[in-house]
Write a protein that binds this DNA or RNA. Structure first.
Length: 214
DNA sequence: TGTTGGATCAACT
DNA sequence: GTTGATCCAACAC
């Protein structure tokens, strides 16, 4: 575990003494299903000018390769999905249904297009800021869905291709034990329903609503 | 150049 | 359970 963690300026132990380590590029270059499961219980952090927003990741989905019909790389290399063809450790953002952005982390080695979609978070730092961005909704409804996460955290296409080892957006291991994980089919996809590549922390308030029903 | 449908969400009935 | 909002990438012409 320790070898995949890299301390850097932004993940230095803080005054409170809480242990925080930014995940390194090597973390994301592993097989996508492994990365997806290991992301649960980690913390997404986004830095805006003078403001830090963070949340615990509790729901993700894996999309792996051109042979996965639900993966955006199923159509081959395009302007939209090209970042997935590079090495892991970068942000893949796409715009959907005319109004929402979705946040993904590129995984695997260069040449294998794959990513993990971040579907659900429990807000931690910057909750008031998230409420403002999300039209003052209750905490439990702030980031329990991929479109809501991007609204709450202010993530848009300007985040496309950003390094997850940089200073704008990253993931921290705060030393918590890995949570119990449930898996299921992915949500909202027409193709690839046979692959149980959605992973989530059962009973978390940050799991998307659609997901709770299944 | 035009058409179509989507890894969503909220507000309906 | 159904539908509207509303953009853009993909694909057919």
């Amino acid at each position: 575990m320790a070898e995949i963690l890299t301390l850097s300026e932004t993940s230095r132990p803080r005054p409170e003494g809480q242990w925080k380590a930014k995940l390194s590029k090597a973390f994301y270059e592993k097989p996508t299903l492994v990365v997806a499961k290991e992301l649960l219980g980690k913390y997404l952090v986004v830095r805006h000018p003078n403001r830090i927003l963070s949340g615990k990741i509790v729901e993700v989905e894996a999309y792996v390769g051109e042979e996965d019909p639900a993966c955006h790389a199923a159509v081959g290399l395009t302007d939209r999905n090209h970042i997935m063809y590079g090495p892991g450790g970068f942000a893949y953002i796409y715009f959907i249904y005319g109004m929402y952005h979705c946040l993904n982390f590129v995984t695997e080695q260069a040449g294998l297009p794959a990513a993990v979609l971040i579907r659900g978070l429990e807000p931690v730092e910057g909750v008031e800021e998230m409420k403002r961005r999300r039209d003052h909704r209750s905490v439990s409804g702030l980031a329990n869905g991929p479109g809501k996460i991007c609204q709450a955290f202010g993530i848009d296409k300007t985040f496309y291709g950003l390094e997850l080892t940089g200073t704008r957006i990253w993931v921290e291991d705060r030393g918590e034990k890995r949570p119990a994980i449930t898996q299921s089919a992915r949500i909202g996809v027409a193709a690839g329903k046979d692959k149980p590549w959605r992973f989530y922390v059962p009973k978390s308030s940050g799991v998307s609503k659609d997901g709770k029903k299944r």
